[in-house]
């Protein structure tokens, strides 16, 4: 199993849960695909309809920013923690 840490702004999309447990699925892309299936509203906050990670959403796998590793191909091993965090750069509205 892996654990997904949900930021507070998105918890209303997963019935208030701060943590989600999911089966380990290989890559981050596979994890996000399963997320789309189980929690589609959460999924679309994180990726657009073409599957691209939203610009101001950061995902860390066991503390590593996936954009600095292999992006959506980043491996997510059994027991990993996937943390979703809003970027500080995204506060465009001030």
């Amino acid at each position: 199993m892996i654990t997904i840490l949900v930021p507070s702004a998105l918890r209303s999309d997963v019935d208030g849960a701060a943590r989600l447990e999911m089966p380990a699925g290989g890559s981050l892309a596979a994890i996000l695909a399963e997320m789309d299936r189980q929690w589609p509203r959460l999924g679309r906050r994180i990726r657009d309809e073409q599957g691209q990670l939203r610009k101001f959403v950061n995902i860390y796998v066991d503390g590593e920013d996936v954009r600095r590793v292999e992006g959506l191909a980043t491996p997510v091993p059994d027991g990993a923690e996937v943390q979703i965090l809003p970027s500080i750069a995204g506060g465009a509205v001030g």
């Binding site: 702004a9 679309r44 906050r45 101001f56 995204g90 465009a92």
Partner: peptide
């Protein structure tokens, strides 16, 4: 209401 989050689309 159509809304846009600068983070979450």
């Amino acid at each position: 209401a159509g809304m846009t989050s600068s983070h979450y689309g």
